[in-house]
Amino acid sequence: MAQVPTDDIEELLPWYATGRLTPEEHARVQAALERDPELALRHDLVRRELAEAAAATEALGSPSTRAKDRLFEQIAADGTRSASARSFLGRAFGRLASGSTGEAARPLRLAFAFAALLIILQAVTIGVMLVRLGPSLFTTATGSGDGDSSTGTFALIGFAPDATAAQITGVMESSQARVVDGPRAGGFYRVRLSNSKLSKEDEDRALGDLRGKTGIVIFAEPSR
């Protein structure tokens, strides 16, 4: 009869004692314990270790309420930011909804679906931060009911890698810019600065405002 390697079995004893082995491993250990009295003694030692170690950990007590207070304060702060983002998102969807009746409804719904798809693709690409706030930045993009994506004044912008979601949201809201495409190679986004064609002076001013967001916007140039 083949000898079961007891070294392997002994390594499994802690999990046998906690009942966390697979059924196959459990059966192997049980069989070995029944035929090997020395292994059974080592298993007794494991059970005593387990009881003592668990009791010692229990003795570490509980955290104070400070930890919970701090957590839920931060969650509340997060909620405020999310509410702000949702409000921005709501306005965008509101504009879309107001233009999505009558004859224009079908193409707008398609555009909306396209925009939603774009949101998902963009959010996946640019990471966790924009995954959370991505919709607020992108839902006012293509097919927003403010005219098609070929009309208006556009810019290509890039954000600093360490810009926070709140900062990016702030820039987009203050400039009334809407992402219509991106991220492109290099992480750039095409944004619409205005639904109408701006004068050169107004376009330069809008771009200047974006470039003035140092530490957040690292690139802002006209896009045709």
Partner: peptide
């Protein structure tokens, strides 16, 4: 889960005050 996580973290960082900070960060 907070009590068990706290005890796990205390074992690692060996300070209750630091463990409480880590606890709230983990749940956040």
């Amino acid at each position: 889960h907070h009590v068990r996580v706290f005890r796990f973290v205390v074992r690692l960082v060996a300070r209750r005050d630091v463990a409480e900070d880590v606890l709230s960060e983990a749940f956040l």
